[in-house]
Simulated scan of single mutants.
Amino acid sequence: MHETVRALRTLRGQWAALLLTIETPPADHWPPRQLAHTIREGDDELLVEDRAPLVLREHPAPLNLGALDTGRAVERLIFDLADTLAAAVQRTEQGDPRAWECADPSAPDSRRAAGSRAHGLHWACVWIEGRVQDEDTAPEHELDGALAAPPFEVLPLYLLHEARRTARIAEARVLRALGLDRRETPLPEPCPWCAGELTLHSAPDGPPSVTCSGGRGCSAPVPLDGWERARVWEWDDLPELIAALGLDLGI
């Protein structure tokens, strides 16, 4: 359950960035695009939450087809999972704000035809998280004090496993599209201080960092790693490294 919830929250946290990436030409993973707000202070256009819609739209001319394909695939995975869970455990009546409404292609209104999918991936992730955590599965008191059947049943174990599998696949696809998956990427430029090899380290659970293979022989003004084999530029040090390399974020 905890892994599923973590993956769903990662999806929600990175979804706006993915939608913004669809409108941005593909770029190398270096320099890290996350540093744009640090390098170009005062540029309000770089605030992802303000720029990007949280619902995937039809883009007449997307600039990053890979990101668009990822967005469509992830939406399909999450929406289909919500449909599956609703069919198995949802007992609440239509119109209840807690209900997941499956798509109805025969509905005359386009929003009704889309069902709860019209609310976007954020709502789907929140709803699935509720099912995974068995929310609203206890009998409810009615006005006369009697107990009514709960709106949802407890999620069976096989669907809990399916939710975990699907959420982790979707999370991995989004992180990979954003260059935030766990990877080590050699940089084309040598270290400005010792000409050693620079390597970009990225991971889904923290900001990127860069190491120099020069170790103690490198005079860069950053500390050594725990093994004292490489100089390390952590998140706060990366702008200085980018400036020393004479690079531009290109955003």
Rank of each mutant, 00 (worst) to 15 (best):
L81P: 02
W127R: 12
V222E: 14
A172W: 15
E153L: 14
H141I: 09
P105V: 01
G250C: 01
E184R: 14
I22E: 04
P105S: 00
E228M: 05
L143W: 14
I251D: 06
T4W: 10
F79S: 00
A67K: 01
E234R: 02
G95K: 02
D144A: 11
Q14F: 11
E41I: 00
P186I: 03
W123H: 08
A203F: 13
L63V: 01
A167H: 15
R76D: 15
L155S: 12
L8M: 09
R164C: 15
A172L: 11
W123R: 09
P188I: 08
G66H: 07
G226E: 13
R111M: 10
P151E: 04
E140Q: 09
T137W: 12
L247V: 05
P62T: 11
N64Q: 04
D144G: 15
E228V: 02
W15E: 14
A114W: 00
D96H: 09
R216I: 02
E129S: 14
A52V: 04
G145E: 07
G66K: 01
C125I: 15
T166Y: 11
D181K: 12
W100C: 00
L65W: 06
V5A: 11
T24M: 05
H59V: 12
G120I: 10
A7N: 06
V5T: 13
L247M: 05
S202L: 01
E58M: 05
D28E: 10
E23V: 03
R168K: 13
L81N: 05
E197Y: 08
A172D: 12
I169Y: 07
W123I: 06
R231H: 07
T199H: 09
P151A: 09
T166G: 03
